[in-house]
């Protein structure tokens, strides 16, 4: 259910960077530990973009697997599921190295070249 709030936050970041231009595509990285359901995020995004500069924009979600370093045996492994544990020795005492990302990585924007050249020549 937090997907709706996250979708809104993604739109806020994109809108700020778009500076008035239409947004065609938003690329986000979502770490496994954020417990975001991709389909729910897509659904929420499609709802919240309506009537904004992102209306109709595509949301591309890259899933980042959780990875950790075991504080007991030192092994670095990808952690597939909760509860988080070391894949080598089974310890639950792991330092999370990846999987907590929630990033807007890039935007594809529509830019009016004519408009831009007009502005720069005046």
């Amino acid at each position: 259910m937090h997907e709706l709030s996250i979708a809104q936050a993604i739109i806020d970041v994109a809108t700020r960077h778009a500076e008035g231009r239409r947004v065609l595509r938003v690329e986000v990285q979502v770490g496994h530990l954020r417990q975001v359901v991709p389909d729910s995020l897509q659904f929420a995004f499609a709802l919240v973009v309506q009537g904004t500069a992102l209306d109709g924009a595509e949301l591309a979600i890259t899933h980042v697997p959780a990875a950790g370093r075991c504080r007991e045996c030192g092994a670095e492994r990808v952690m597939e599921s909760f509860p988080l544990s070391c894949g080598a020795c089974g310890s639950f005492d792991v330092e999370v190295l990846a999987g907590e990302e929630l990033l807007v990585e890039a935007l594809e924007l529509e830019e009016d070249l004519l408009e831009k050249s007009r502005v720069s020549s005046t």
């Binding site: 936050a9 986000v28 807007v104 830019e111």
Partner: peptide, 15 residues
């Protein structure tokens, strides 16, 4: 109109 790509790399919850 043309399509440009802008790198952002910003935490969604930064604001």
């Amino acid at each position: 109109m043309h399509r440009i790509k802008v790198r952002v790399v910003e935490d969604v919850l930064d604001a």
